[in-house]
């Protein structure tokens, strides 16, 4: 009787061992590659921030009706609207991407800091710097620090009006050589905004690619005669310029104060 119990216990141990071993997850022998794993995780989050910054610029420019429907005489209002609207778009983009990333890697990241600065020139405003920090529940922290400088002027091209923007994008003080850009015209009449593309399209996949070794990019677009002839312009020119995967981006909104062609 005692022997049977012993055999029973042994068989039980045998069966439990088998079950445990079969259900245990597979493991690998050897050291873990912590440094490389962390670097990849950190770079992935940094790329999410960079992509969010760039796509938020396109998204902002593509839906400028939101802030142009009520045209304002005061450029400072336009500047603060642009700043707020871009920050909103950045948040939407980041949340969307972080959600997809969490589903893939099981790592939840959140946007800790977002500082957007807008600068003004003569008849134009633009996003001049973006600083964003993200932290994740696996301890990864990533940030982007990018800036833009824009000089814009209106040109009289005879039948057409012209807009020439000298754009300089930097990421961590490094000048960006490869950019994508697009431009559109938004006309506001009776509180209704109508926009149409005049160069490329406000979509990173359909925009214009521009490489310049100096990092200075001249974006030149034409304004159709029916608009450039306006003595009291009701239209805005919106230009987006972004890096490709480096997190630098700007949205320029320009409004001439008078006729810019036909002289």
């Amino acid at each position: 009787m005692r022997g049977q119990v012993l055999i029973g216990v042994a068989v039980l141990i045998f069966v439990i061992t088998l079950l445990l071993l079969v259900t245990l997850p597979k493991r690998t022998i050897g050291p873990t590659v912590d440094i490389e794993n962390y670097t990849i995780a950190q770079l992935e989050v940094e790329q999410i921030l960079r992509n969010a910054a760039e796509e938020a610029a396109y998204s902002t420019a593509n839906t400028l009706e939101a802030i142009l429907t009520t045209p304002t005489e005061n450029p400072q209002d336009l500047a603060s609207s642009l700043k707020e609207y871009y920050a909103e778009q950045f948040n939407v983009m980041f949340t969307d991407k972080a959600g997809a990333y969490a589903a893939l890697r099981g790592v939840l990241c959140k946007l800790d800091t977002l500082d957007v600065e807008v600068s003004e020139g003569n008849n134009y405003v633009y996003i001049s710097s973006i600083y964003a920090v993200a932290t994740c529940d696996n301890g990864v922290m990533a940030f982007i620090n990018t800036a833009a400088h824009v000089e814009l002027e209106f040109k009289d091209l005879g039948a057409f009006g012209g807009v020439k923007a000298a754009v300089n994008l930097t990421s961590d003080q490094q000048q960006i050589q490869l950019i994508t850009y697009a431009a559109a015209l938004y006309n506001v009449t009776n509180g209704v905004t109508y926009g149409f593309p005049i160069m490329g399209s406000f979509n990173p996949a359909e925009s214009v690619w521009y490489f310049n070794i100096t990092g200075l990019h001249y974006i030149q677009v034409a304004v159709p005669p029916e608009y450039c002839m306006m003595a009291t312009p009701t239209y805005y020119i919106a230009i987006v310029a972004t890096s490709v995967g480096e997190g630098a981006a700007t949205v320029i909104i320009a409004q001439p104060t008078g006729n810019i062609c036909g002289t």
Binding site: G3, L6, I7, A10, V11, F14, L21, P31
Partner: peptide, 29 residues
Amino acid sequence: EAALLTVVIILTFVVAQFLFKVQYVQSDY
């Protein structure tokens, strides 16, 4: 009974060894 018990225990260890080898995958780091 003692012999049978010994055989079962040894067999458990042998199978465990074999299975552990399957569980662990040699990796080329």
